[in-house]
Amino acid sequence: MIPLAGDLNDAKGIIKENIGSFGTKRGTSTLKRGFAHMLKNGVVMDVTTVEQAQIAEDAGSVAVMVLDKLPSDVRKAGGVARTASIRIIQEIMDSVTIPVMAKCRIGHVYEAMVLQETNVDMIDESEVLTPADETRHVWKWDFTTPFVNGARNLGEALRRIEEGAAMIRTKGEPGTGNVAEAVIHIKNVNNELRRIKSIYDDGDHQDLISIARDLKVSYTLVEQTASLGRLPVVNFAAGGISTPADAAYLMKLGCDGIFVGSGIFKSDDAKERAQAIVLATTFWEDPNKVKEAQKMIDERQSMLGLDTKNLELRMQERGSTA
């Protein structure tokens, strides 16, 4: 069953209509969050072309994310990174059977509307693109299409859920090939969840209220999350995942699944690596299977990667205070 903490029943994104003699509703929290639940234990791969999308589907990815440039190229190119060409998104939608997601800029309500009109299956309001409004994210309850948002800690995650995000992913540091930041982010979220769960179990409402104030979210959402002891939506890892072992490690840390950005198509063995990362994600509990997956790739073909300490651009900080 889907925990419905932070549900908004009269959201504008909910559409009621009659089909034949049946009354139907679209865009409800159950449908949006339910969609994310179907992705669990899977890998979503960043792609920029139809060919890459087909490689991803054949490798067993649960969905593809369409970008104009892979995050590491965004980092190199500089300038303004915007949503991908609609024509390419549509070509990919016509050529694979798995869900197709696309990214919009943080706060860019109209890029998001254009993606909804394009009929993508999920919109990623993403720090990989140049933010359009860092003080206010998209109010996602107005959309019928579900959203995924990045977060570095519990406060960010809950603020995004309060705005209507149906799924959360860690931010990590995109386009670096370095998993270190994603590891920190998931540990941050887990630690904070453990803390509020124990406060909830102690029945200390005063402390929960002060946490809600610190995190800048409603008390109700904090209380519901604390009672669950986990985020009320599906939570994937993202940012810097490059190898099967990276993916398996993040699954072990309690993530529900994996996003891989530059790690696959910036390597020199994309096909094998795509398959290997899927295998390691599925069978993460079995170190021998992860070893077999790791054996399918060649470390000399991995993307070089960057030290995350001295980056000129820290994408993860975009929109994090709002």
């Binding site: 509703k25 679209r26 865009g27 449908l31 339910g34 969609f35 059977t97 993508v120 299956d121 019928t144």
Partner: peptide, 16 residues
Amino acid sequence: ERNAFGRQQDSFESEI
């Protein structure tokens, strides 16, 4: 027929 009712935006709830 897979995806018989359309993509995610056409996902729906209805009493059956």
